[in-house]
Design a protein around this nucleic acid. Sequence first.
DNA 1: CCAATATGTAACATATATGTTACATATTGG
DNA 2: CCAATATGTAACATATATGTTACATATTGG
Lengths: 107, 107
Amino acid sequence: MSSQIVRQKFIALSDPARLDIVRRLASGPKTAGELAGPYPVSRPAVSRHLRVLREAGIARAEVRGREWWYSVDPAALQEMQAWLEEVRGMWSTALASLKDYVEEQDG
Amino acid sequence: MSSQIVRQKFIALSDPARLDIVRRLASGPKTAGELAGPYPVSRPAVSRHLRVLREAGIARAEVRGREWWYSVDPAALQEMQAWLEEVRGMWSTALASLKDYVEEQDG
DNA sequence: CCAATATGTAACATATATGTTACATATTGG
DNA sequence: CCAATATGTAACATATATGTTACATATTGG
């Protein structure tokens, strides 16, 4: 998983509208119209947000007639979790080494 | 964990320099100077990135003399993981309900 | 067939983030 | 004490993201 790819996903979730859209999508697939409904911004603006989510791989769209049904891709979220887990793992290791070093110095 | 707070963390990791800084910090605490070293941008620019990471709670700084020692806060990363896990959990539940519904319709 | 509907895209204006240079502050070493 | 060092902050220029309006495209329902 390249750094570029994981970063694109962090960008995708860094906007309040997109973060909220993803949260709402978690309760099941929705059309672009349903998703745009609750926001004060225009529908084309939401359409752009949906594109950002699609391009980051966080959302997918299935075109059914004139409706686009959006859903989240849990694998994309899992990739983000994996990145975070990797950093936390490295940090634990680093902490352990640091502890050994300090103990060696002291006693 | 408010949506605002988790979003600030996603913003923090949406920049390539900051993503890289966090990755490098995982191998152990580093000074601002060490962190700025490898980048083509100016040191004040890196200083700003470090502030963004601090304000998001992802990095902490300990001032020792004239050096600022930075380290990652694994708890912040864990909060992000928890948010992602929550969405994934909701999605599994939604999928299960959808499956039940479809089965009811078909048979 | 055609008006209504659902939606994406283009072009542009504006808000926001990022970079630079200049500067302020505090600490260290002789 | 004071020059060198480490670092943050301020002010401003510029790149990037986001919003709007106008438009294009495809589908549906009568």
